[in-house]
């Protein structure tokens, strides 16, 4: 159903055997990217280190969305709510209840995974537009609860409280911790989508009926994929709690799900690592635009419209297509 979104150009697609193989060129590219990321605090002022931290966190959210959109062919619009559930629980636990932030993060991720499992139970029987619609409605219910349940969530005012322990109080120390965590998470996600299980997911995306007749339990695979995806979104949300030290309904709002999806699409659906490019592009744009105008929402909306009309395969996919065309 979602093949209109996930048209990754030939040769770069996840279907080729090259997707799994670590060619020397790829190892060099990853090494250079890693080195550049490690050098960020030495080269850039604190403000940009903070933006880079945000990019890393949202890249995890975008990748978690990509697991569903790119590998099962089901585009979710409720991941902002799953992400934000972890943020809410982490901050609530460490601020209102006065518990340890690390325990808070664990409980936050567990809560997000539970929410994802409930979403999954309801949504996996549908596909295409219905799947989108359902995850959207479910996510918005979480938003509505956060907005109205004032005694716990603080309503529109949200909850404020510094969650970050002293030893990672500086921008660069926190950045390195996040970078290490994100590197580990990215590796696990990469292994996940390239595992036999991940290949089965791609099979389901290409043809559900074929996989069913081959004897695969399609609903179970989708349920696990959704829950795992929500687990990763929850990790991103828990780290975001430490990053932001503040949570309000806008953290679980549709805007968050949309921004995450836009990052995944910009980076190219089904490319996983593209999410880093997408997150960097959208967050840089947000910061750039915000310094000139308050109309960030309009710009986000306009980007969505333009990408849907002109480059549904994403910016990265588009560039690849243009490169491929010019080569031959």
């Amino acid at each position: 159903m979602s093949r209109d979104l996930a048209s990754v150009p030939a040769g770069a697609g996840p279907t080729g055997p090259s997707a799994v193989a670590l060619t020397p060129a790829r190892i060099i590219a990853i090494a250079i990217a890693g080195l550049a990321l490690v050098c960020v605090p030495y080269l850039l002022p604190n403000y940009y280190v903070s933006i880079a931290t945000q990019v890393l966190i949202f890249a995890v959210l975008a990748m978690s969305i990509d697991i569903l959109a790119g590998y099962t062919g089901r585009t979710p619009l409720g991941h902002g709510a799953i992400f934000g559930t972890a943020t809410y629980v982490t901050i609530y636990w460490s601020t209102t209840l006065g518990g340890s932030p690390w325990t808070g993060m664990l409980i936050g991720v567990a809560a997000a995974t539970t929410v994802a499992a409930i979403f999954a139970l309801l949504a996996i029987r549908t596909s295409g537009v219905y799947f989108l619609l359902l995850t959207l409605a479910l996510g918005m219910i979480v938003w509505g609860v956060c907005l109205r349940w004032t005694s716990v969530t603080g309503g529109e005012n949200g909850i404020r409280g510094s969650v970050r322990p002293m030893f990672i109080a500086t921008h660069s120390a926190f950045y390195y911790l996040v970078l290490a965590a994100v590197a580990a998470i990215t590796f696990v996600m990469w292994r996940f989508v390239n595992s036999p299980f991940g290949l089965t997911l791609r099979g389901i995306k290409d043809s559900e009926s074929r996989m069913r007749s081959l004897g695969y339990n399609v609903p179970l695979h989708l349920f696990i994929a959704f829950t795992v995806s929500g687990f990763f979104a929850g990790i991103a949300g828990a780290i975001y709690a430490m990053f932001n030290s503040f949570v309000s309904p806008s953290t679980v709002a549709l805007t968050q799900s949309v921004a995450g999806l836009l990052m995944a699409i910009t980076g190219g659906i089904g490319t996983l690592f593209g999410s880093f490019v997408g997150a960097a592009a959208i967050i840089s744009l947000e910061n750039f635009v915000s310094s000139y105008t308050e109309r960030w929402l309009s710009i986000l909306g306009l980007m969505f419209v333009l990408i849907m009309v002109f480059a549904p395969e994403g910016i990265v996919g588009r560039i690849r297509m243009i490169l491929a065309r010019s080569k031959g």
Partner: peptide
């Protein structure tokens, strides 16, 4: 974007953001 279901939906979402803003 006629005929592309998901692109249509996401496009209207973008329009929603613009209209609200």
């Amino acid at each position: 974007v006629r005929g592309y279901e998901l692109r249509q939906v996401l496009l209207t979402l973008g329009v929603a953001f613009i209209l609200n803003d």
